[in-house]
């Protein structure tokens, strides 16, 4: 009774370590990780807005931190997470419509999500540096 023998002997359903890693599986995991990263990244955005609304000193401090090389690396990662999560979300919309469940379609969409997010992020920062020098 106290050592719960019956419960302990039941087999567990297979989990992650059983399966060979696949691209679609990885994109699902990355979608969740980028979502959680964006959750905390939003904090940085709100800090920037509140600093802008508070005082020139506070705004200058936050801008200096975000504009430093380590801050820019963070913003680069933030923008990639945003674009990846957005493309992943569009993929979910296609599934919601009842399309793209076949082996080729879902594999193609997984490749477009990761490839598209990387290409769009690099393009975004090229545009930023082209416009802002």
């Amino acid at each position: 009774m106290s050592d719960m023998q019956g419960a302990a002997r039941r087999p567990l359903s297979p989990h992650l370590q059983i399966y060979r890693p696949m691209l679609t599986m990885m994109m699902s995991i990355v979608h969740r990780i980028t979502g959680v990263a964006l959750y905390f990244g939003t904090f940085l955005l709100i800090v920037w807005l509140v600093a802008a609304a508070s005082s020139d000193d506070a705004f200058a401090t936050v801008n200096a931190v975000y504009g430093s090389w380590i801050g820019l690396i963070g913003l680069f990662g933030f923008s990639w997470a945003l674009l990846h999560h957005m493309l992943g979300g569009l993929r979910h919309f296609i599934w919601d419509m009842g399309h793209g469940f076949g082996p080729q379609a879902r594999e193609l969409m997984a490749k477009l999500t990761i490839g598209g997010s990387v290409v769009l992020t690099v393009l975004l920062w090229i545009v930023i540096y082209a416009v802002k020098g």
Binding site: T42, F43, L45, I46, L49, V50, A52, A53
Partner: peptide, 17 residues
């Protein structure tokens, strides 16, 4: 808290605080 802080900050900036 994030939503309230963000909206308040924008309103304050917009209303010229």
């Amino acid at each position: 808290a994030m939503g309230c802080a963000g909206v308040f900050a924008i309103l304050k900036i917009s209303f010229g605080g």
